[in-house]
């Protein structure tokens, strides 16, 4: 096995600035997306994910311009998500230089959109973002549900079933975020990561809750994730990408060093 596990720094961008919320509220400014993307590229990030978290109409053009600027300077895969609702949105972002497009809410409100997007652009560039929250009580058989609107709105959809369905519809990769953990620094929800990773054939990116490097190791070793995504531990300089890669490699994980 020589395929490396991936580290993906995530830029949550609001009105042209990288921010990071705690449980999606309470926002801290981390800087200019293009500069940050370049820094991560120089550090050896395996991919970059750019999530437009406002996705309001006015900021759309800013996002496209940012994606263009990043894609012109950073030659590693770039995933763009946030507010992607129509095939035209996908076309715009691919033309701007995105390599993969992450679909979140629109997949829940209109699952056929995922099928249409995969047929038109190919599964290789369609990532479905799954925001899951644990709904079972302690002691019960664990169960997770899909939530939308930044974790505020339940859908009643079982997360594992949903993951299988999205892959059937053509998702080439899943970006799984634990809404209980996001921004908490308490580590990934390894239960849901393992359950979904075992349930589907496509790669799974674990996200939500990274607070230290052991969490990244656990995401791969215990969660079965193919890639780990983190934001704040990198943005605020607690760890660099090379720190994380070395640490994971020391724990027996194949990495691109």
């Amino acid at each position: 096995m020589s395929l490396a596990k991936r580290i993906i720094p995530c830029l949550d961008v609001d009105a042209g600035r990288v921010v990071k919320g705690v449980n999606f509220v309470g926002i801290r400014d981390a800087g200019d997306p293009v500069e940050i993307a370049k820094r991560y590229n120089q550090q050896g990030a395996d991919e970059i994910t750019f999530l437009d978290i406002t996705a309001s109409h006015e900021d759309r053009d800013t996002t496209v311009e940012m994606v263009e600027r990043i894609a012109g300077e950073v030659f590693i895969p770039l995933t763009v998500g946030g507010g992607i609702r129509r095939c035209d949105d996908i076309r715009t972002m691919l033309n701007a230089g995105a390599d993969k497009i992450s679909i979140n809410t629109a997949a829940v409100t209109n699952p056929d959109f995922v099928r249409e997007a995969a047929e038109r652009f190919g599964s290789q560039c369609i990532v479905v973002a799954i925001d899951a929250k644990r709904v079972s009580a302690d002691g019960e058989l664990p169960r997770w549900e899909i939530f939308t609107h930044g974790g505020r709105r339940p859908t009643g959809l079982d997360a594992v079933e949903w993951a299988r369905k999205m892959v059937d519809y053509g998702a080439g990769e899943l970006l799984l975020t634990s809404m209980d953990r996001d921004g908490t620094k308490a580590g990934f929800d390894l239960g849901v990561t393992r359950a979904i990773s075992d349930a589907v054939e496509v790669p799974v990116i674990a996200s939500g809750g990274v607070g230290n490097l052991d969490h990244l190791v656990a995401g791969v070793k215990d969660g079965g994730a193919d890639a780990v995504l983190a934001a704040s531990i990198f943005h605020f300089g607690e760890y660099t990408i090379p720190d994380a890669k070395r640490y994971m490699a020391e724990h027996g994980i194949e990495m691109r060093l």
Partner: peptide, 21 residues
């Protein structure tokens, strides 16, 4: 192929996605 597993029994994903030698 489908339902592939690696030497340690881990599930191998298809597509082959990521950085390889």
């Amino acid at each position: 192929g489908h339902h592939l597993t690696g030497p340690d029994g881990e599930r191998l994903k298809v597509p082959h996605m990521g950085w390889n030698r």
